[in-house]
Nucleic acid binder design. Structure first.
Lengths: 139, 139
DNA sequence: ATTTTTATTGCGACTATGTTGCAATAAGAT
DNA sequence: ATCTTATTGCAACATAGTCGCAATAAAAAT
């Protein structure tokens, strides 16, 4: 999603462009890994921006409700979030615990059709995480 | 996994068959949905088995280390666990919030090969969750 | 059947994570 | 410059999970 598009979405919700919100949009826009409330607080501290934990949690909820970000759940990691849009999946290294977001199409359409037929389950979204060893850790 | 096989694994770890452990193996063996520490405490209470929260958390870790169960992370739900073995994926209903474990093969082998080639990431496991509406909730 | 070994348990205290109400502040429209 | 109300900080709370230690209880040894 473009920065302009994000700001439009936020204005539609009567959102104001505060310092914390601007910084968080920047973080999410450039992060190559999902962010937790705690990691966001650390990123803010590095920019000398002080913010209460409560503010971060409320902001995360706001951005999620607005459709700007969505939640990601990964084994061994806290509740995290990343920018919406695109088909984001995750490579979770069991060695260094790094998480990399990767965007790619996959072949799950037929699977989702089968679930509708056999399980009468109407899929609207899915999440896919790969666990293993990254380049650095696989030696 | 068979009950006998589970007990063997536990004995290999010098594990003893306590009331709580037996009950938890039973719960995991019959549950069609992943279990959280809290839901296990409730199941125990129904059987008139009192147990401390700490015990449950320690037992979950023991069973995970032993390879009997593995962790499951689902958006909107607490940290949960289910029996290992088989290829378990999940159908998460956004209406009633029920989670159903389903075992099926999928077509991700070629994807995992591609990740090894393109990302130099050595996949050892993956998790796949489908979010949507179950039969009851999709009307 | 008793004793012995040590895995397991409960308890209390603690940390981390996340939420709520309310009064104070500040974005941005008028 | 003023006004409206979105946003913030704070304190208090709720929930989830962990740790050390002494007490208990499997189950092996006697």
């Amino acid at each position: 999603m473009e920065t302009a598009e994000l700001e439009k979405k936020i204005r539609e919700r009567n959102g104001r462009m505060t310092r914390v919100r601007k910084a968080m949009l920047d973080f999410f826009g450039t992060a190559e890994t999902p962010l937790t409330a705690t990691s966001i607080l650390e990123l803010l501290a590095r920019r000398r921006i002080t913010a209460n934990r409560t503010t971060i949690y409320r902001e995360l909820r706001f951005l999620e409700d607005t459709g700007v970000i969505h939640e990601v759940r990964i084994i061994g990691h806290g509740r995290s979030f990343e920018l919406s849009g695109g088909h984001r999946h995750h490579l979770v290294c069991l060695g260094c615990h790094d998480v990399k977001s990767v965007a790619f199409k996959n072949h799950l359409d037929s699977e989702e059709e089968r679930l509708l037929r056999d399980e009468r389950f109407r899929v609207s979204d899915h999440s896919l995480e790969f666990y293993g060893l990254c380049d650095k850790c696989s030696e």
